[in-house]
């Protein structure tokens, strides 16, 4: 695959991830295009979440985790010793598998991230904008001072998205954001993603192939190597092509449901 620079936000080169002595991801090369949705699919344990978490160095939080290779963000390696993970995460936000709002008010949930990142502008405006962008404003505008924990699962997840976009990141990472939600809530999040991609680059990990097919522009298929159980990038390309005419037999097997 050929990528020209500039169009791409991330460029992963020869990435290997380890947990202790176990290699979870091996020899991965991958580029992520700007203002597009890229989906990572594959069976569980294939390393797709691990790769996602290298993009904002969330792996750092696991004491035994180690990364080799390069994760270039606009050409700068995120794993250079002088790169500060705190700054990385402000620019590359993340939405998690289970909705995890803070046990604070809805307003505070959105404002918190902005505040710690030194936001100096009109906070009310920012909160409203972020909630509007997350398609939650109309549902919560009358109860901003109520606890975020009081919302439904789908609303909580949209609150988490609002919280993530409040610090104005460039990229939003989503780690199976709909796996804890019902189909209607899932649909709303998917619609939202199509809206958000106008302004943000989105990378989503999903178990759900239909979801990847519905929302993503590009799809990367990961699989666990039978020999050493390390995750491996099998195929990467335009979503349509991956789902209609996969080049790799293993991708085809997975997509047609023959295994996984």
């Amino acid at each position: 695959m050929n990528y020209t620079n500039g169009k791409y936000v991330f460029d992963i080169q020869n990435l290997n991830c380890y947990y202790g002595s176990f290699r979870a991801v091996k020899d991965t090369d991958l580029s992520i295009e700007s203002k597009k949705i890229t989906a990572f699919i594959g069976p569980s344990g294939c390393g797709k979440s691990t790769v996602l978490r290298t993009f904002n160095r969330m792996n750092d939080l696991i004491p035994s985790a180690r990364v080799t290779g390069e994760v270039l963000f606009h050409g700068q390696n995120l794993y250079d010793p002088d790169v500060d993970p705190v700054e990385v995460r402000r620019r590359i936000g993340m939405v998690f598998q289970k909705p995890n709002p803070f046990p604070k008010s809805i307003y505070e949930n959105v404002a918190w991230g902005a505040r710690i990142n030194g936001f100096k502008g009109n906070m009310d405006e920012l909160v409203e904008q972020s909630l509007r962008q997350a398609a939650l404003w109309d549902e919560v505008k009358d109860k901003l001072d109520q606890s975020g924990l009081g919302l439904s699962g789908g609303q909580q997840q949209r609150l988490c998205i609002a919280r993530t976009i409040a610090p104005r990141p460039e990229v939003i990472l989503m780690d199976e954001p709909c796996s804890a939600l019902d189909p209607i809530a899932t649909l709303k999040i998917e619609d939202l993603m199509r809206q958000l991609v106008k302004n943000y680059t989105i990378i989503i990990v999903t178990h759900n192939m239909q979801q990847a097919a519905r929302v993503s522009d590009y799809t990367a298929y990961f699989l666990m190597d039978r020999d050493d159980r390390a995750g491996l990038l099998i195929e990467y390309g335009v979503t349509n092509e991956i789902f209609t005419k996969p080049k790799d037999q293993r991708t085809e097997d997975y997509i047609t449901g023959r295994f996984g």
């Binding site: 939080l61 995460r89 402000r90 936000g93 998690f96 995890n100 046990p103 710690i116 990142n117 919280r163």
Partner: peptide, 10 residues
């Protein structure tokens, strides 16, 4: 919750 905070750049 810790993950959420770190994810926001805390």
């Amino acid at each position: 919750l810790r993950e959420a905070a770190y994810g926001l750049g805390a």
